[in-house]
Amino acid sequence: MSQTTFAPRPISAEAAHANENRKFGMWLFLSSELLIFAGLIGAFVLTRRNAFQNGLEWWEPNAFSLALVSINTFILLASSLMVVLGIEAIRVDHLRKLQRYLILTAILGAMFLGGQAIEYSLLIFEEGHSFADPFGTAFFTLTGIHGLHVFVGVLWCLMTLLVARRGTFSSYNYTTVEIFGLYWHFVDLIWVIIFTVVYLTN
């Protein structure tokens, strides 16, 4: 039984060309975002090195922090899988499956932000870190900007879901979902790098 709300029809050559331009534009945007995060990660590494060289106190994650962030990382990676499954579903006109996977993506993204909020509360209220110390400045700037990107991604996911509920997408028309997917995978990839640099290396 078909899960689409209308019979999918091929898009025009002009529309296909426009879609390719949209994807190219997203790749350009992500390239600029990559430069921003490269600078932020580099600043974190340099700040940590200077702190070590000058004998300043630097935070070391304990077992609980590593467990919390590891779970959060798994959640974000699982959300990327949901996006992949959603795109695969719409490629064969399973619109309802796409909607379910988008819902799961948004839920997992919100769970990641919740985990990050827990970590922030521990660092601020229990360990006393803030923008007043080198670690707090580097850590909250880097992870906070990434968290903002996740928040934007959750909102984008919900907007894509609203469009999907109107029956707009089909096997011939799902570039909007692909573009959202590019952004979401990028955010996940950046987090894997941040996780490695911040929590696994000294």
Rank of each mutant, 00 (worst) to 15 (best):
L66S: 05
S31T: 15
L85N: 05
I107E: 05
G167T: 13
A15Q: 15
V84M: 09
A67L: 14
L30S: 01
A67P: 00
S80W: 05
L95P: 03
Y120L: 00
A78H: 10
G42Q: 01
A138L: 06
T176P: 06
S31N: 06
A132L: 06
V187G: 05
P134M: 07
G55T: 09
G42S: 05
L158Y: 00
A78E: 05
E178S: 04
F135H: 09
L85S: 08
V92F: 06
G55N: 11
L76C: 02
F140S: 05
A106G: 08
I145N: 03
S130P: 08
T176F: 11
Y120C: 00
L161K: 01
S70P: 02
A89V: 04
T201C: 04
T5N: 03
F139E: 03
G167K: 10
F44W: 06
E14T: 11
I103K: 12
I107P: 08
A7F: 13
M82Q: 14
D188P: 00
E178I: 07
S65F: 12
V83K: 07
A89R: 12
F112G: 13
W27S: 13
G147F: 01
I193E: 09
L158M: 15
N54I: 02
N50G: 00
S2R: 10
A117P: 03
P10C: 11
R165L: 12
N54P: 00
W156S: 08
T176Q: 13
E126T: 11
G136N: 03
L40K: 01
R166G: 09
N50Y: 07
F151K: 08
L123Q: 04
A15G: 00
N54K: 11
A110G: 14
G115M: 07
L155D: 10
F195D: 05
V83E: 07
N19E: 14
E60R: 14
L102C: 09
A63F: 11
S121H: 09
L162D: 01
F186A: 07
V152E: 05
F6V: 07
V69E: 13
I90V: 15
S171W: 01
V154A: 12
Y183S: 10
Y174T: 05
G25T: 05
I87Q: 11
W58A: 01
S70Y: 07
G42K: 04
F29W: 07
L123S: 11
Y120P: 00
M82E: 12
R100V: 08
V197M: 02
F151R: 02
F186L: 01
G86C: 09
I71M: 09
A18E: 10
I90H: 04
T168H: 15
F195Q: 00
E60W: 03
T141Y: 06
K97R: 12
G86V: 01
L77Y: 03
L158P: 04
W58Y: 14
N50Q: 04
I124H: 12
S32L: 13
W27L: 15
R9A: 12
K23Y: 02
S31M: 14
F29Y: 15
R49Y: 10
M111T: 11
P61W: 00
L34N: 14
T160Y: 00
M111Q: 09
M26L: 12
L108P: 14
F52K: 14
R91Q: 15
P61Y: 01
T175L: 02
F140Q: 02
D93P: 09
F112Y: 15
